[in-house]
Amino acid sequence: MSRAARLLALLKGDAAAEKVVPPSGFTAQLTVFTAATMAFLAVFALALSLATDRLATRWGEALGQSVTIRIAASEGDTDAQAARVLEILGETPGVASARALDDAEERALLAPWFGEDLPLDSLPVPQLIEVIETGRGFDPEGLAMRLRAEAPDAVIDDHRRWRRPLIRAAHRLHLLGIGALGLILLSMAAMISLAAHAALAANGQVLEVLRQVGARDAFIARAFVRRFTLRAGAGAIVGTLAGVASMALLPDMEAAGGFLTGLGFAGAGWLAPLLIPPLAGFIAFWATRHAALRALKEIP
């Protein structure tokens, strides 16, 4: 039988095996409560890590685009400075390619703001130069210094200067979210282990009697495992539903804009919390099984 099939069989049947363990009010309630609260917290950690990942990706894509250099000099001088800038860029390590945008392209860029029929020639429109970096990138400080000396009207438009730390922060938050999720699941495992230990300790005589009449360890463990797995799963369903509901009921923060709005689930991300209850059941399965087999080692 595959592991999944065994797990299914375990959940479905053998209520008979479970009956050999007396009902355990306190540890059972503790398990349900723990699983519910941990699942509730896990929903938020999951939302945080998914949202920050989305944010980092979005910002990273914007970054991938080229850097622009803008030259706004008095007439005539612009072309000379543009030529000089291109020369300098050709010598700058980390620059893959650079080219001046032609009128048509500039018109296309400006159209959203000024309309289609922009008389470029009669306006002091700055010349734009598009720079594509190599993977390692160039040194913006060094380039800025050189430009200041040799093409004083050229300005590097570097969005990355302020975006990079934000992306780093988003990445860090993503990792924190994953770490928090991991810690939450670990504490769930620890608490269910404790509850299982308590139940096993309280049932020392049951374990002894069962061993005396020829029960194998697996049979005895199953009785405890089934109970704790079902309890943890049920608790986690409640906690997950509560967590998802409160995420869905978060006030709409579109007006506040940007960052906060992104802090929820989006699209298929709403399905991710569905993984929490089975995961809780799985954790309870292993934690209880481990605790049971260890407790049984003490019994001849």
Binding site: V213, G214, R216
Partner: peptide, 8 residues
């Protein structure tokens, strides 16, 4: 351990 259970 399983053998002992069997024996019992």
């Amino acid at each position: 351990r399983d053998g002992i259970a069997q024996l019992r």
